[in-house]
């Protein structure tokens, strides 16, 4: 019985992926859980001058200087507040470590390939280039963000571009 469970779980794992679900305003977004290093509170961020407004600055993550990006500002949300509940998801993008500020982290979801639908053409705030699809889960819709592409994109200004 136990063996059977384990076997079926393994089979599911082989095809489905796990996502960390977080909220920005009223919408729910999700990123590949394997990209997430840790989740921590928003504190002690040192401002960096002359950087885009959504780059909040840098913080000390156990001796490593990590930039903090506020996705709420990047996605033009209206209520951007910082408090004890503000959450930073620390993600590994390539060789880099970046912290992203979100309104809250809700849960970890397993999505099967059938539950992942291709992303439609989106508006200007979030180009569909940075989406890996839409996840539908009963009555919820998750926007699956390709965090690698998003954070290394030129408009995020996180990475030195060649001409810079």
């Amino acid at each position: 019985m136990t063996d059977l469970n384990a076997a079926s779980a393994a089979a599911t794992e082989a095809h489905s992926r796990e996502f960390l679900v977080f909220s920005l305003g009223d919408e729910e977004y999700a990123i590949d859980i394997l990209k997430v290093q840790e989740i921590r509170g928003y504190e002690n961020v040192t401002r960096i001058a002359n950087a885009p407004d959504f780059i909040k600055g840098v913080t000390n993550l156990r001796g490593v200087i990590v930039p903090i990006v506020d996705l709420r500002i990047k996605f033009h949300l209206e209520n951007v507040e910082y408090g004890g509940q503000t959450v930073v998801i620390v993600v590994n993008v390539g060789e880099r470590i970046v912290g992203i500020v979100v309104d809250g982290v809700s849960d970890v979801m397993t999505l099967t390939p059938e539950q992942i639908k291709p992303a439609p053409e989106f508006g200007v705030t979030l180009s569909s280039d940075y989406l890996s699809g839409l996840g539908s889960l009963e009555d919820r819709m998750l926007v699956l963000v390709d965090i690698d592409k998003l954070l290394t994109s030129e408009e995020m200004a996180l990475v030195d571009t060649i001409d810079a």
């Binding site: 001796g63 490593v64 030195d160």
Partner: peptide, 12 residues
Amino acid sequence: KNLETNYRKVSG
């Protein structure tokens, strides 16, 4: 500490 490890060159 190097800023460019995870971020980029910051002028000044």
